[in-house]
């Protein structure tokens, strides 16, 4: 009884984890630029790998404490990676495609401006070619 329950949980975790991994890869292919793609790949690490680790706890001799440390390290390190890649991309000058608004570019153009508390430009003003580069 308990064994079949743990199998059920493991199968569910594998299915959901695989689903989110597949969605992440589809997003990696479909989304337009590097920033949006990092959202999709970040999901593979948070949902996909974490849920597969959870499944491994239930059906393999992996100790739960080890899995807990692994999940904590994944959750801590994953965002650092995607932030580093997107920050590097912005410094390289890759445009934010279809951007409705780009406060960072406004901040770069006018260092003294307090962008966060200023009223933002109307969100309908869509730019085709992304952020202007300084």
């Amino acid at each position: 009884m308990l064994e079949s329950l743990s199998y059920l949980i493991a199968v569910l975790a594998v299915l959901v984890g695989t689903f989110f991994s597949v969605v992440g890869i589809i997003g990696l292919v479909r989304l337009p630029d590097v920033y949006a793609r990092m959202h999709a790949t970040g999901k593979v690490s948070t949902f996909g790998v974490v849920l597969l680790t959870v499944a491994a706890v239930f059906v393999t001799p992996l100790a739960w404490s080890k899995a807990l440390v692994l999940i904590a390290l994944l959750i801590l390190a994953g965002p650092v990676v995607s932030h580093a890649i997107s920050s590097a991309a912005y410094r390289l000058g890759l445009p934010v495609k279809q951007a409705l608004r780009d406060d960072l570019a406004r901040h770069r153009l006018d260092k003294s401006a307090d962008v966060a508390s200023q009223p933002s430009p109307p969100l309908t003003a869509s730019r085709a070619e992304g952020a202007p580069r300084s």
């Binding site: 989110f20 969605v23 999709a40 279809q98 780009d102 406060d103 901040h107 966060a116 933002s120």
Partner: peptide, 23 residues
């Protein structure tokens, strides 16, 4: 995660990307 999955799987890909400043 569910929200982003829905955006990615939507055939029209309804994204409205942009960068906002948050204090």
């Amino acid at each position: 995660g569910i929200r982003v999955a829905r955006i990615v799987l939507d055939p029209k890909l309804p994204i409205r990307p942009g960068i906002i400043a948050v204090k």
